[in-house]
Design a protein around this nucleic acid. Sequence first.
DNA 1: CTTAAGTTGGAAAACGTTTTCCAAACGCCT
DNA 2: AGGCGTTTGGAAAACGTTTTCCAACTTAAG
Lengths: 358, 358
Amino acid sequence: MDIREIARRAKVSTATVSRAINRVPTVDPQLAKRVWRVVDELGYYPNTQARALVLGRTRIFGLIVSEITNPFFPEIVQTFEDLAVENNYEILLTSTVHDPKRMESSVRRMIERRVDGVAILTFGMEESLIEHLRDRKVPLVFVDVGPDVPGIANIRINYISGIRQAVQHLAAMRHTRIAFIAGPEHLKSAGARREAFETSMLEIGLPPDLVVIGDHRMEGGMNALLELNKMSARPTAVMCSNDMTAIGVLREAYEQNIKIPDDLSVVGFDDIHLAEFTIPPLTTVQMSQHGLAEIAFNALLNEVENSTSPREQHSYELVTSLVLRKSTTLARAVGSAIIPEKSNRTTRPRKAAESSPR
Amino acid sequence: MDIREIARRAKVSTATVSRAINRVPTVDPQLAKRVWRVVDELGYYPNTQARALVLGRTRIFGLIVSEITNPFFPEIVQTFEDLAVENNYEILLTSTVHDPKRMESSVRRMIERRVDGVAILTFGMEESLIEHLRDRKVPLVFVDVGPDVPGIANIRINYISGIRQAVQHLAAMRHTRIAFIAGPEHLKSAGARREAFETSMLEIGLPPDLVVIGDHRMEGGMNALLELNKMSARPTAVMCSNDMTAIGVLREAYEQNIKIPDDLSVVGFDDIHLAEFTIPPLTTVQMSQHGLAEIAFNALLNEVENSTSPREQHSYELVTSLVLRKSTTLARAVGSAIIPEKSNRTTRPRKAAESSPR
DNA sequence: CTTAAGTTGGAAAACGTTTTCCAAACGCCT
DNA sequence: AGGCGTTTGGAAAACGTTTTCCAACTTAAG
């Protein structure tokens, strides 16, 4: 069913139909009504491909995430979706699963489909791939740590604000041996979190030396706690680079019969929805997924709609802050740190996958 | 950058370029190589809109889910994505969040973008909306309980297989007061689970009378346990309509200081990835999300690619089965069912949202 | 050497829109 | 009534592909 079909039935030209549909004000109200009647009657929907072809705009935004199964992302996707519906856009979602091949194909797909802009929420993407997008003048927005080229919108996360709060909170509870379970090493965002932890610790005169590497997954959290447990001077509190890691810690603590928070205080990072429902409820640093998605979408939208204007702001900042729940408490008297009683374990933790999230 | 630009530079016609790119065998290898060189040099990507316009196929599949933030779905989306990449398709993802308006807009968007097929994983969709899709001959696949019209692929879930196993497992553990926390009432899939529970109970001669309504969310699970707790004859075991509900139960049990599994055995449904990491690890009925997505995608693909063939199979079945973890154990001696000791509670559970998941 | 068959590449139409001209129709002033 | 600006609607070009013809060339057979 064509626009021509509509034109024929309404006894006008296709130009008029197009104008009526797009609500151009100069068209005679009588005629417009006639057109709309036919449109509704036949259930006609304009072909967006044809429209995109002539307009040079697809009304599609690309969204590249690193791993849709990481509970951090669905919230973002949902908000992005909401905004898309509101503004008549579609989303082209790709998930890189940390695979260079998938990153490449993601970018290729974005270009092939001629998206109007791309939000990139994955890291370790080859510089050359990004160059590909830039060559084509596709508006880009990076979350967290994109390349620092002018002309690319960048949403910076203020990690220090929330992490400092967390560390101070722990210190106020008289913890002195505070460990950190980092994310995968190649991941810039994980690096930034770790740095924020280190500076926060130094600020209050504590040595940030208890650091083990996780993978931003539950599996990594489990293994990390095992490692922490082997240390001679065991920590009385542990900060995790993200909530999934913290959930892993909680889980392994249960196996080891380590009581949280009495034997060990734990704090997470991200404040995913789930964090409210862990056992015990997780004290964590909040980084609003909703806010993040909103900023990203609007940055893109702004770039597309008023690309004439001298693109004022190209750097946004999202602050983080501590939310207190029940996984932290006062440090015990010195010496009585982690004392496993009996083990709950019946199964070994799974080996962490080699590639690693966000 | 055009196909014409390529043609010019390679000193051939656009037809030849098109043929070279699409690997039509009749084109002279020499020429093809020449064309490819230019293509690679300029980084040319065909415009998919234009292609779709002439081909009448977009290579886009629609995927309508009810709520992307429900951990059940991301796994499905990921698998769908994987298959899409493999087959050179894109996914148009929409999330209805149980809102009729969003369902309508989902369908509209699918039609506007001229997707080649739609997988529907949401319920309570107006018959008329589906009719809309059918009118346009868009291949459809329903998961679980679609309308029973011939010509629409339907993936049926065999709930009884897994749920019967679960009930029998519980009974073997000497539980006799087994409760069920159902999903939202308007939801067909939830109804089917409940029915499966009831028949399984009757089969072994137990009355399926301890049923309370949840909402397939953690909040609903928490509230449901509260309700169960008020009963005079408290259950010693509870089955949940999905894992999120079970997680809520675990969480509320923690508040109430009810020991799982000693005071109460709980089993979930879905076997989301998280189920392995709850405290204690959740015994649950598995329904392979991977398998589900795979069947759905292939059904669509099959319909599109060989729509000539007399569409052999239009009904698929996915079986479910029990996976044992640590949230169930032997029933205690009669009379000592749930005995709250002291309460952990500091915060009230949030009021469940009024609309309800999956 | 001529002709028939087979290969290969090009010109142009088609896909379904939007938009730029243009021309017709209309109202208004003198 | 004639001229003039202003609405209003139509014809046609353009967007970037694929594909159908068809013509030109190559090869092989007679």
